[in-house]
């Protein structure tokens, strides 16, 4: 069942379409990955579905209703932003107390355990916290709120690998006990690849991928070997990426060619990160080729 739906949603800032005719759903009690390059439109999409912005056109529905200035809907939605600001007089404890008042499912015991684990100094002024400590405030609120729809927009800035792993472990365990709809927006795709059940990729304001992780895993392969054999193998399939070295070629093909000779070839699975990066580059290049881009990126830009 869909709890959040966007239909033909566009958000324009001046001449720029940050989100351009986008439609997708978030399904109840699933963990979604919302992926894309910087400036692709992920945060704009999340601000619209949490009622913080109004679309220029199109329809946003959360639990079947318009989320904008809708207190009933918004009490069931928790949005953890990378750039979250708190009042200057707040100490860390105030941020958690505020969240405890806003979210009906708040679990104080869970929050206390997380504070301990992330070593969050509760009495420090929020503006004195390090980048990582500030991120852990968001992570703790996002988990302990147990909101039916929880969105994490790049929640990790400054969090080290140990803290990120702790976040993933708590997320999996708590989601298993208290299923809810979760959105992870992140650049660290490899880290979340096995956690997210559904993947939506935005590029230049448009959806370029929207499918279950399981389908995506079986949708592409990397093939390497003698150029001729690789070309025969991938003939008729979309080649998302190609590299040549001497008579040796490596391609990433979408769709898995079957019943073809693989004796001299190495056929390997593609990681979700690889697939997302190459698909994005493929779309960027296609747009650049047709002169249809909106000025961001050059089709070969690094993923970061």
């Amino acid at each position: 069942m869909s709890v959040v739906s966007l239909r033909g949603v566009t958000k324009r800032y001046g001449d720029t379409r940050a989100v351009d005719d986008v439609s997708f759903d978030l399904h109840e009690n699933r963990i979604h990955g919302l992926l894309g390059r910087n400036g692709a439109g992920k945060s704009t999409a999340m601000r619209m579905l949490t009622g913080q912005e109004v679309p220029t056109s199109g329809q946003v529905r959360v639990f079947g209703e318009n989320p904008y200035e809708n207190a009933d809907v918004l009490s069931r939605v928790c949005f953890i932003k990378e750039s979250q600001r708190y009042p200057d007089i707040f100490v860390a404890r105030h941020a958690l107390e505020a969240a405890a008042m806003v979210f009906p499912n708040w679990d104080q015991d869970f929050a206390d355990r997380l504070v301990e684990e992330f070593r969050l100094p509760l009495k420090s002024r929020v503006r004195k916290l390090s980048r990582g400590q500030l991120s852990s405030v968001g992570v703790i609120i996002g988990l302990a709120a147990r909101a039916p729809v929880t969105l994490f927009d790049e929640p990790y800035l400054g969090l080290d690998a140990v803290a990120r792993q702790a976040f993933y472990d708590h997320l999996i365990a708590d989601y298993a006990e208290h299923p809810r709809t979760i959105v992870l927006s992140t650049h660290l795709i490899d880290e979340v690849a096995d956690i997210i059940e559904h993947v939506t990729v935005i590029d230049r304001g448009r959806i370029v991928m929207d499918d279950s992780s399981e389908n995506l895993r079986s949708q592409a392969v990397t093939v390497s070997g003698p150029t001729k054999a690789v070309e025969q193998f991938s003939d008729g399939h979309e080649v998302l990426h190609r590299e040549d070295l001497g008579g040796f070629t490596r391609v990433l093909v979408s769709g898995v060619p079957t019943g073809r000779d693989t004796a001299s070839l190495q056929v390997e699975p593609v990681s979700l990160q690889q697939l997302v990066v190459r698909t994005t580059q493929f779309h960027d290049a296609a747009l650049a080729g047709s002169g249809n881009g909106n000025g961001k990126g050059n089709g070969k830009g690094a993923w970061s």
Binding site: R30, I172, A176, E177, P179, I195, I196, E197
Partner: peptide, 15 residues
């Protein structure tokens, strides 16, 4: 259990 497997392998419980 499903939840034990999910936690151990760090995968989605649905998987």
């Amino acid at each position: 259990s499903t939840n034990e497997l999910a936690a151990f392998h760090r995968i989605n419980p649905a998987t």
